[in-house]
Design a protein around this nucleic acid. Sequence first.
DNA 1: GGAAGATGACAAG
DNA 2: TTGTCCTCTTCCC
Length: 276
Amino acid sequence: MPEGHTLRRLADDLDAAFAGRPVRVSSPQGRFAADAALVDGQVLVGADSAGKHLFVEFPGDRYLHVHLGLIGKFDLRPAPVEPPLGQVRVRLQNETAYADLRGATQCDLIGSEQRERVLAALGPDPLRSDADPMRAWVRLRRSSRPMADLLLDQSMFSGVGNIYRNEVLFRHRIHPLRPGKSLRVGQFQAIWQDLVDLMAEGVRTGSIDTVRPEHTPEAMGRPARVDDHGGEVYVYRRTGQPCLVCGTTVRTQVLNGRNTFWCPRCQPKFRSRAVG
DNA sequence: GGAAGATGACAAG
DNA sequence: TTGTCCTCTTCCC
């Protein structure tokens, strides 16, 4: 489930398990073998995340840079170490724990200059206290692109993935196709603050829960239900089911290759501007 | 047992 | 817009 909160948790967990001690670095699958040899046995300095990127630091200006993509996983387990199962691109291990990376889109050993380049390409990250949302606003307020599109653009907001974007649009009653520039600054600020809160909660719990207390199963007298991804949501992957708020059937459409979900009643189509 | 799909991001046309 | 990469799970026969 690689959205920003997943990467932040992963960075924190890897840091707790490995930082400050020598670590064995290997590539059972082989694709990372040459790079692994360069840092094998060194002290792991620390792990950090930015947006959906993970950086594991080694001495001598070296960073293991990982992007999990759609299907990547970095599984951390306590010792004893088990033989690698399947395609393990990278394994980190010490006396107390080991972590296996599989299916990542990106996995490279880079220097700080390259790392800076990656960071520079990212928009403000709702999980970082030093993020400046106005950087996103100045672009968004001039953009005709749909909000659904803008929210997934990592140079606009980093760390936001498909679940958070669909859910935050629902929570603010904004139609996915509504152009960025039609938003008022107050709406933008509310969305940003909501992302900050929701994603911080995601880091705490490890799941994406977006349903407000007044709409929970208990409050609405519905049977309890938890989605595949471990939390409760309003619209994400709820195609054809009744909206939790108004009962209207949740709709879906592929937009820019990504599944988009919304409630046509709670998120009414914006009025097109009068031509003239 | 095999196809399809998935919380992502690219390049090519 | 389409194709491609990467791996695992779910669904259908």
